[in-house]
Design a protein around this nucleic acid. Structure first.
Lengths: 188, 188
DNA sequence: TTGAATTTTCAGAAATTTCTGAAAATAATA
DNA sequence: TATTATTTTCAGAAATTTCTGAAAATTCAA
């Protein structure tokens, strides 16, 4: 279990970023290591390579499995369980994306939905509800958009992404804007 | 500074979600309260309403200002500074989105870019670099996509979002896929 | 200027999250 | 079945993040 300095740097970096992406440092490190390591690794190897406790590895693997980011494998003749990240990076990204959608949007949508059912009792509440309504609509739309991205077959997803700024053209076609559009309407 | 129970619930919820969106509980609460409150509030009012210390409010406001999520206002005849969330919810969402893009993608892109410049020293490193390359391309594409969404004028952004699943149609038009597409090719 | 009002800072306290390691549980083999 | 290998659990330790409150800095007005 010797890792080159470069790989080391990558693993540590992923650890630091992990918390921004929704899991903790060691989980991020484990994920990174499993990704760049050609062969599957067992829990002891992970613990040794990352110098963290066996227990921590066990918990981390549990979490990665819950996220469906790693796969269990068995090596004939070896009783230990081995792990790798499952195939395609794009699939992994999709999983992270979807998991975050669930955690970051769903709960708030649920709360707002129930809040908006009740009638406001006074002026103040009416104003608050107006704002909640706006937030609700925004989040609902982001949610729907995220869902449709998620359901796109991989190939189309890539096409859409690579479209990048060119997306504007497409929109113009679908929804030709009146010249009276807001702000920047210089060219064409 | 009396808040209705409903507003209270909303504020608390935003506090809990805050950490998932990239800021801490009290910052989330402050943001929520400033959003649903019709009039701007000063630091003392925030501290009282949320029962947190004056110092914490000061730090929170600093952070919200760094995110460009709140605006300072002055009320004639009052020496205190007052704050509100700036206008449109969609603008605020854009700011959060962009801020997260910066924090969650940029650092990793930078690291990977430099890692990929160096030639791999052995088989193991070569494999690791292959994976890093894949991740790099993925993140780079997400990044470009996020940027183009961010630069879309508000109106078009809404159109795109509301297009939702219908986006597929558009893609078919722009990039008609050969029947030999991967995996799911049943209908049409 | 001076001084009162207001805001900011930051060391240490409190709360929260993550990690360890030994014990318990589970699984495989003999 | 008993024995050994392996994994999981979880109480408390360690690390990290957030919060408080008093002191320092700043701003404004007289």
């Amino acid at each position: 279990m010797n890792i080159s300095p470069k790989s080391q740097a990558f693993v540590l970096h992923f650890g630091e970023m992990g918390s921004r992406w929704g899991f903790n440092r060691t989980v991020g490190q484990m994920f990174a290591l499993l990704t760049i390591h050609p062969e599957p690794l067992n829990a002891d190897q992970l613990a040794e390579a990352l110098t963290i406790s066996r227990g921590n590895v066990s918990m981390g693997l549990k979490e990665l499995q819950a996220w469906r980011l790693v796969e269990r494998q068995h090596i004939p003749g070896d009783r230990k369980e081995y792990f790798t990240t499952s195939g395609d990076i794009w699939d992994l990204a999709r999983v992270v994306f979807e998991e975050r959608r669930k955690r970051e949007l769903d709960p708030t949508l649920t709360l707002l939905r129930s809040q908006l059912l009740e009638a406001p009792q006074d002026k103040q509440e009416a104003y608050a509800q107006e704002k909640m309504q706006e937030i609700y609509e925004l989040l609902e739309q982001m949610n729907a958009f995220a869902n449709s991205l998620n359901n796109l077959p991989p190939q189309q997803l890539k096409v859409l992404m690579s479209l990048g700024a060119g997306i504007t053209k497409l929109l113009d076609f679908k929804n030709p804007l009146k010249k009276s559009d807001d702000k920047k309407n210089g060219e064409e």
